[in-house]
Amino acid sequence: MKDLIKRLTEAFGPSGSEGPVREVIRKEVEPYVDEIRVDAMGNLICLKKGSGGGKKVILDAHMDEIGVIVTHIDDNGFLRFANIGGVSPMVALGQRVYFENGTFGVIGCEKLDDIKDLRLEKLYMDIGATSREEASKKVKVGDMAAFFQPAIDMGNRIVAKAMDDRIGCVVVIEALKRIKQSEHDIYAVFATQEEVGLRGARVAAYGINPDVGIAFDVTGTGDTPKAHTMEVSLGKGAAIKVKDSSLICHPGLRDYLVKLAEEKGIPYQMEVLQRGGTDSGAIQLTRAGVPAGVISIPSRYIHSPCEMVDLGDVEACVNLCVAACESPLDF
């Protein structure tokens, strides 16, 4: 699993440019599913057919990551950019970024009299070019770049960029590999454009018209020095979401997941996330409504290139996902 986490987090995939991630996942899941298709929004939808009589279940994880998009190239070959998703200027400053064609850049900042004036508009990208002409040979306005950071194996914890939400993808992939018997038609949706408004999942869910939707995404923790108040801690198990800014989870499904975790002895914690949304927010409001929930992977330093997860938590999420798929889901 560590190898898969490394390959997936290091793949390139800002929102709208998820192609490379999609190819890694497609190869990985092909032997374990019955049908694979890609829809108009680029969602990778994989169907693992059930034994019959069950429900249509979406397991969703988003492929896209935050990044930047080039808006202007100046005479001296410096690039200006805008954010794709929630990019903090504090986090972006001093980072290395890379484009899909392999071009690297570094993020510099105009002279500031006060660090409080730090804004994304004050930042620029330097790809080592000396003129607009030279820069334009490698990068065009509208090209996207992702943050560059190789994954680091810390033993039971792993740090990487794009752990949000490749670790969710890993959980769903692992579950597809481990599910032994399910009556349900499982639609694994590897969704696009979550970071810019839950947009891939919205259309995927409309197309599939499911009976149940469960998203797998990262959630914050309250266990770091002077963190904001939150009960979730790294290493204490799968987080079963009650609420975030995008949805209030279906109470029946939520309690069903809690009961499953208790029966199977899977470590879990209850989660209320004050800021941030997940694909389930879109899935829930599909057509005439879908019971939707979220199993979250606790993560520190979300939306930085150093997102940290605990392998014990990842394992708990996989186990809970498998248990849910192998259960009747009759909440």
């Binding site: 949805l247 209030i248 927010g281 057509r287 005439a288 409504g289």
Partner: peptide
């Protein structure tokens, strides 16, 4: 339901 957080109740009931 859920008007105060997302208008979600109206979204799905009107669809139905």
């Amino acid at each position: 339901s859920q008007e105060e957080v997302s208008l979600g109740g109206a979204v799905v009931s009107a669809y139905g």
